[in-house]
């Protein structure tokens, strides 16, 4: 046991070093910066908790939080939902699993910025693909990125981009379920839909929990789709884009850092809540 300690330290060290350099140090630095008013990196004045009090009276923060939560809802319902449905479907087929796995996983390897640019051309009012098709059939053009519809329009590529990732996680979890469970179910006459609801899903509940937490925290990072498709206009400002605007566009790193700290706290809170809500005995096979 004593000899192990050396190895424990040895194996933890690289990860610990990387994490502290690229995660913990920048985070602490953000906390520190959030106490200043800054002008680029040139000057900073200590202002105490001014940035945080400003945040409480900032309407944009409230709106951005709500927009983030709205996207989160779409992500949980559609992204995780579709991923689960697809995984169940693919798990039940006899051959071609590998093909579908690759096809469904494929969008993930395309960068978000590229997908966004693709959707800029799909949604564009003047010469976008959708309006082009509508015009061909003699319909009125539709403003896809309208004041009320922008966030939903942006949610489409956001949801689609990551379905494959959760799909693969679900599929892997399902393949871990021992086949004698299914054999026993078969003998009892439980097949099809019932099998999925009463057997498969309860057996992968811990994976669903992980996926939900990943999806929720992942939504806090949504940036590229909103930025490239709508620049945060028309009711699409999310926490990520607002932080970027304040820190990078306005060069107000102090307020930007305060928003970043808020995003972290908000994210931790959300994952704690999710964990609580989904508290259930772990399944062991």
């Amino acid at each position: 046991m004593k000899g192990d300690k050396k190895y424990i330290v040895l194996f933890l060290l690289p990860a610990a070093l990387l994490m502290s350099t690229f995660v913990y140090y920048p985070f602490l630095r953000s906390v520190y910066l959030s106490l200043f008013r800054t002008s680029g990196f040139f000057s900073k004045t200590y202002v105490g908790f001014d940035n945080y009090t400003r945040m409480f009276s900032d309407d944009m923060i409230r709106a951005a939080t709500l927009h983030t939560l709205e996207i989160m809802l779409y992500v949980i319902v559609f992204q995780v939902g579709f991923a689960l449905i697809l995984a169940v479907l693919v798990d039940n087929i006899r051959w071609g699993k590998g093909f579908y796995r690759t096809v469904f996983f494929f969008p993930i390897v395309i960068s978000g910025a590229a997908i966004s640019l693709l959707f800029v051309l799909i949604y564009n009012y003047q010469f976008g693909m959708l309006n082009g098709a509508l015009a061909k059939f003699g319909f009125e053009k539709i403003l896809w990125l309208s004041e009320t519809g922008s966030l939903k329009a942006i949610a489409v590529p956001t949801v689609w981009h990551y379905i494959g990732f959760y799909f693969v996680l679900f599929l892997t979890a399902m393949s871990k379920i021992p086949s004698d469970f299914y054999e026993a179910a078969k003998l009892e006459g439980i097949t099809g839909f019932k099998k999925t609801i009463y057997l498969t899903i309860p057996l992968i509940i811990s994976d669903i929990k992980v996926v939900l937490i990943l999806a929720i925290t992942g939504t806090l990072k949504v940036f590229d789709f909103v930025w490239i498709l709508a620049r945060g206009q028309n009711g699409t400002e999310v926490l990520g884009t607002y932080m970027y605007k304040k820190a990078i566009v306005d060069l107000n790193f102090g307020y930007g850092s305060a928003i970043a700290v808020y995003i972290v706290v908000f994210g931790v809170l959300l994952s704690v809540i999710t964990n609580r809500l989904l508290k259930k005995e772990e399944v062991t096979y």
């Binding site: 390897v109 395309i110 960068s111 910025a113 590229a114 997908i115 640019l117 490239i228």
Partner: peptide, 22 residues
């Protein structure tokens, strides 16, 4: 092979992004 081809795809995506000159 899959990882490598995935990397390749990613590069293409990145380049597409650059064309937007943002």
């Amino acid at each position: 092979l899959m990882i490598l081809s995935a990397c390749g795809g990613n590069n293409n995506g990145g380049n597409n992004g650059n064309n937007g000159n943002t």
